[in-house]
């Protein structure tokens, strides 16, 4: 399956790559037994983009990352990095990855671990530089088994930087980090990406995606359900809900109104989800003078995220979404 072959060279920035895209996923499917983890993902990431993969736990983020790194083979579809198979990009040191909870080799100091890992790459970043960038030079002499969760995460970040890669893939990088460490982490990541490198990170924090990514790809139930800038995604989820008893209205008519995104009928009331509740209210009052029991609520971020990620999010991490707010 070589679907990437027909792609056009839209971006010549990568030089010799046969495909202009840094990452190109086409029609990816992957099931584990009866669990359909990834159900048709198409995604193209241009070189230099910082992309957030946003979705609740179990949405298929990690599986998609495994597929694009070549750690798992897709049931169908293709994953291409710089126009080639993932293994080729890995072998050439063009990809660095911070895997979720990937353990560190025990009985080594942090510096030794980074050094071992660097020895396994053709043109690694100097060990000192990787440690400095990841902010772990102060724990260089500590044994890997004695690190806190946040420290271990930063060591994993250093491992992702060691190949001196063109693409960095980070799977839930800030899990186990406290607020301050998290801020430092994103500052280092930003600095690294500023050199024109491509970054793709998975997160279930809406705020994190919005703050640090140029582009947010929302994934739920193994599919991409939204793809745009953080602002556009937030706009989709930052609307208000106007609910009222509206005699004479119909769901269809309400849906046709400007800025209305969704209409639900709840116990004889209409719940009108819209971006501009002021405008919608004025219009409703003019059109339906009988309207009564009006309530306008702002969808909180958690609800919005749940709405965006749809029915798949029954077990969505409400705490993390709330934390993102």
């Amino acid at each position: 399956m070589t679907t990437s072959e027909h792609s056009t060279r839209t971006s010549p920035r990568t030089g010799p790559a046969a495909d202009g895209a840094a990452i190109r996923l086409s029609g990816l499917h992957k099931s584990f037994g009866s669990v359909r983890a990834v159900r048709g993902i198409d995604l193209t990431v241009a070189p230099g983009e910082v992309v957030a993969f946003l979705g609740p736990n179990g949405a298929g983020k990690s599986t998609t990352i495994d597929l694009l790194l070549g750690l798992t083979k897709p049931d169908s579809g293709t994953a291409r990095l710089f126009g080639g198979v993932p293994d080729a990009a890995v072998s050439a040191g063009r990809v660095g990855a911070m895997l979720q909870s990937g353990a560190l080799l025990p009985d080594l100091t942090v510096r030794e671990l980074i050094r071992i890992f660097a020895a396994l790459h053709r043109n690694p970043m100097p060990v000192g530089e990787a440690m400095l960038r990841a902010g772990i030079d102060d724990i260089a002499g500590q044994k890997t088994q004695n690190l806190s969760g946040g420290q271990a995460q930063r060591v994993r970040f250093a491992l992702a930087l060691v190949p001196d890669p063109d693409v960095v893939v980070l799977d839930e990088p800030t899990v186990a980090m406290d607020v301050e460490v998290r801020r430092q982490f994103w500052a280092s990541m930003r600095e690294f990406a500023a050199g024109g490198r491509t970054v793709l990170f998975a997160t279930h924090y809406l705020q994190e995606a919005d703050d640090y990514a140029d582009r947010v790809v929302v994934i739920a139930d193994g599919r991409i359900i939204a793809d745009g800038t953080g602002a556009s995604i937030k706009a989709r989820v930052s609307g208000r809900t106007l609910s009222a008893v509206i005699p004479g209205a119909s769901e269809q008519l309400l849906r046709a109104m400007d800025t209305v995104t969704d209409v639900e009928v709840v116990g004889g009331r209409y719940a009108v989800h819209c971006d501009d509740s002021d405008a919608v209210l004025r219009l409703l009052l003019a059109r339906y003078p009988q309207i009564h029991d009006i309530e306008i609520t702002q969808a909180n971020l958690e609800q919005a995220f749940l709405q965006l990620t749809g029915s798949s999010s029954v077990d969505a991490p409400s705490t993390s979404a709330a934390k993102g707010a």
């Binding site: 890995v90 072998s91 909870s101 990937g102 890992f117 396994l120 190949p163």
Partner: peptide, 13 residues
């Protein structure tokens, strides 16, 4: 522990 997954992201065959 998953260290082998990390190893698979290196040039080591």
């Amino acid at each position: 522990t998953g260290w082998n997954r990390q190893l698979r992201l290196t040039a080591l065959s």
